[in-house]
Design a protein around this nucleic acid. Structure first.
Lengths: 200, 200
DNA sequence: TAATTGGCTTGACATAGATCAAGTTCTTTT
DNA sequence: AAAAGAACTTGATCTATGTCAAGCCAATTA
């Protein structure tokens, strides 16, 4: 049921299995939560007290700049974690908003509880370590792309890295994630179609 | 002497002290290395087998794109770690070069040895966990800046976040780090001087 | 001291991508 | 079925930043 994907996720990332007692602790600590489309999970200025493990639906993390433009930092779907990690860890007010792009259900856990669980469930501790490593690496890659690549290159890279996200989110959001306007993304797509047809 | 700053660094990050026996292990595992200005620590295509803890000098990590342009991803000075973490962790060929910007001395450790040490020195393990957390957060911040801010905003943010780097590296490299050309950085600085004088 | 070099600035021009404004298509709601 | 509204496209312009070229200054080397 609901918690099985989480259990599988932990096993997969930690490469360790968890006992039934441990699983019971997890089920008790992670609370199910439903979000309607457009509903906030976190608002700018609040401390991110929970991280959510998405079991169904789609979410985004974004900031709003001085001109009212949104900049999407992260997109997430089933089996992804969502929340502002910086705020969650440091207990500082978040610079970001997190909301649901589709009706979403997730399992949320508080900072306190995850600390307690880490202490008693080795697999969970290991999972978090691995996630930190990977997220550090993923951010570095995306930074590299943002600094070094053109908009078109970033789009094609996204096509190969996260095809699922491309299909799932409206292009306005994909554009924002790539750091460009929807108009530019539209034109890029047309250009790429032209190129493709020449190749094949 | 040479290893004291490393010891202090570990204590500071892990919030744990290390015993003399542990320190002896560390001294044996971390090998001192000297690099002349412009000398490579890592070249694109090689696997990053060592991470370096800089005890003196200045280094940079950068990629070279199809047009021969360099893009600096990270700058490092005393008390910073340097190397390509992705390649080091995953044992994959690196997309980056790492070299010395000044004559540099560092303490280097191999992947194998750090794994062994992590298993027997809790403080070291904890230090790495904390570093992963923070680097994950720092990358996210920089990504946010790269996507959301103008060149000028990124520069002023860098002024407040890493003043030491600004003083230490030539502006060509600062520009590359910010993802702009040296010419643009030069013009931005002039504009900012104008603004400042108006304020005061 | 002269020569060389690397780093910085400045100007003129080029361009990727943004902005603004319409118009189209496809859903969703009523 | 009508109406409203997303999401996307397209065109015309604008702007931040890049590119190319020249010159200057300071530091290092001969």
């Amino acid at each position: 049921m609901l918690y099985d994907t989480l259990r599988q996720y932990i096993t997969e990332y930690s490469l360790q299995s968890i006992t039934e007692e441990e699983f019971a602790l997890i089920k008790e600590a992670f609370k199910p939560k439903r979000l309607r489309r457009h509903q906030y999970f976190l608002q700018e200025g609040d401390v991110c007290r929970y991280m959510g493990f998405i079991t169904g639906g789609a979410m985004r993390q974004y900031s709003v700049d001085a001109n009212g433009h949104e900049h999407i930092l992260r997109l997430g779907i089933e089996n992804w974690w969502m929340g502002d990690y910086e705020s969650f860890k440091m207990l500082t007010p978040s610079k970001y908003n997190v909301d649901a792009v589709e009706d979403t259900e997730l399992l949320q856990i508080s900072n306190d509880r995850i600390q307690e669980l880490k202490a008693v469930i080795p697999a969970l501790k290991r999972m978090i370590e691995v996630m930190d490593e990977r997220s550090s690496i993923a951010s570095q890659r995306r930074l590299h792309a943002a600094i070094s690549y053109s908009a078109e290159e970033r789009y094609t890279e996204m096509q190969s890295t996260y095809p699922a996200l491309l299909r799932r989110f409206p292009q306005t959001m994909i554009a924002s994630y790539l750091g460009i306007t929807p108009e530019t993304l539209s034109r890029i797509k047309r250009q790429l179609l032209g190129k493709k047809s020449k190749i094949s």
